[in-house]
């Protein structure tokens, strides 16, 4: 099927700013799903609040646009009651790491079969550019006019520590790789986290000497490197991208099915 067969044209134009990375992520999600051949009615997309979460309305799947930070909690209930459905949970960095941080670590702990796609643009875009838990030290934001002093989360190690069985990072510059990673994340039986560095030229770039989308995508190109590359040894500041972990572990809904068998036999 063509990409347009997966979107709700009725609801376009979308609300994302020119140069925003989120449309690239949406395109990659669609292409990954198309390659996997999953039927549209077997897919549920659950999102929270923020620019990234608006992806819900544009996709022709079952879509649930929920509360700020709570997408994974809604998704957990939905998945547990219909385990055969494929659940995608697009989130933003404020959504996933700040207000929804608790749900992120507990979804990882349970290893429930959801795919969290965290579009990390290092800023709260929808509300106009406030600092987030992934805004860098010294970065400017409307709530950090003197420069941000809050250390940022390392999202990959955060979810690894919480028990996620699939963790990857990619960027909007590396689209082919993003599609490939999303395919693997969706196929993976367990909680998958894909962090996508996605540019916000409007609210992050302009304030932080990366004025255009091109500047920001060049940043992703030049300042990231594949996991374990020689460049990383030479320059430890480079951000690694690729799949950090992909491990088979007991999945929550499968474990629940066993629990039901046990309860029934007692």
């Amino acid at each position: 099927m063509a990409v347009k067969d997966y979107i709700r044209e009725r609801f376009f134009p979308h609300l994302w700013c020119p140069g925003c990375g989120h449309g690239i992520v949406m395109g990659a999600m669609i292409r990954a799903i198309e390659k996997l051949g999953i039927q549209k009615s077997d897919i549920v997309v659950v999102s929270g609040i923020g620019c990234s979460s608006r992806i819900c309305g544009y996709l022709d799947f079952h879509t649930l646009h929920t509360l700020h930070g709570r997408a994974l909690a809604f998704a957990t209930g939905l998945k547990l009651s219909r385990p055969e459905l494929t659940l995608l949970v697009p989130m933003g960095d404020g959504d996933a790491f700040a207000i929804g941080g608790n749900h992120l670590i507990h979804a990882a702990r349970r290893n429930i079969d959801l795919t969290a796609i965290i579009m990390n643009n290092n800023i709260y875009g929808m509300t106009g550019g406030q600092s987030s838990p992934s805004t860098g030290y010294g970065d400017l934001a409307t709530t950090a006019p003197y420069g941000n002093i809050d250390p940022s989360f390392d999202p990959v190690n955060l979810v690894l520590g919480a028990g996620a069985s699939f963790v990857a990072r990619t960027t909007t510059y590396h689209v082919t790789s993003m599609i490939n990673i999303l395919e693997k994340a969706i196929t993976h039986k367990g909680f998958s986290v894909v962090e996508v560095l996605s540019q916000c030229p409007t609210y992050y770039g302009r304030k932080n000497r990366l004025a255009t989308a091109v500047d920001m995508m060049n940043f992703y190109k030049n300042r990231t490197t594949p996991i374990g590359s020689k460049d990383k040894e030479k320059n430890p500041d480079l951000i690694e991208r690729g799949i950090f972990i992909q491990e088979e572990r007991p999945e929550y809904c499968a474990e629940y099915a066993k629990l039901i068998e046990k309860a029934r036999s007692q």
Partner: peptide, 17 residues
């Protein structure tokens, strides 16, 4: 669930199925 509000969210998600 991990807290009260996620319990509420989870039942809404389940209800939709």
């Amino acid at each position: 669930m991990e807290d009260e509000l996620s319990s509420m969210c989870a039942i809404v998600g389940a209800s939709l199925t």
